[in-house]
């Protein structure tokens, strides 16, 4: 099945300053809190130490948003959130929930 047909889709992105890295999901079940945090960490680990350090606060905010969402039952698409590196032109971490549901609590 093509990823577009899967019900629950989205991605985490680290962008700006010439960087464009992402971690996507496309699956039949909503993305759980645990899987979301794991994907976000995977994205973070793709970056160079400098890129990671620059976006440290943005990753913290993204992590916090995912956890807050989980305590509120998750989120439904469409979600588009930008966590800009303060003072930068466009260095950021983005969260996009393209379809379905994400960040569901573990017991959901």
């Amino acid at each position: 099945m093509s990823s577009e047909k899967l019900k629950h889709r989205g991605r985490f992105q680290a962008q700006g300053g010439g960087l464009e890295e992402s971690e996507n999901w496309a699956q039949e079940e909503p993305l759980s809190l645990k899987s979301a945090l794991s994907l976000l960490l995977k994205l973070k680990n793709k970056l160079s130490p400098t890129e990671r350090t620059e976006r440290e606060k943005s990753f913290i905010k993204a992590d916090k948003f995912i956890k807050t969402a989980a305590t509120n039952g998750g989120v439904f698409a469409r979600i588009s959130r930008t966590f800009l590196v303060k003072g930068s032109r466009d260095k950021r971490v983005d969260i996009e929930v393209l379809s379905g549901k994400a960040f569901t609590p573990e017991n959901d």
């Binding site: 969402a69 509120n72 039952g73 989120v75 469409r78 959130r81 930008t82 549901k101």
Partner: peptide, 17 residues
């Protein structure tokens, strides 16, 4: 265009967007 409430209906109120 974008959903600014959590699944339980609580609004985010955080400006993003």
């Amino acid at each position: 265009i974008y959903n600014t409430a959590f699944a339980d209906g609580q609004k985010m109120y955080d400006g993003n967007p």
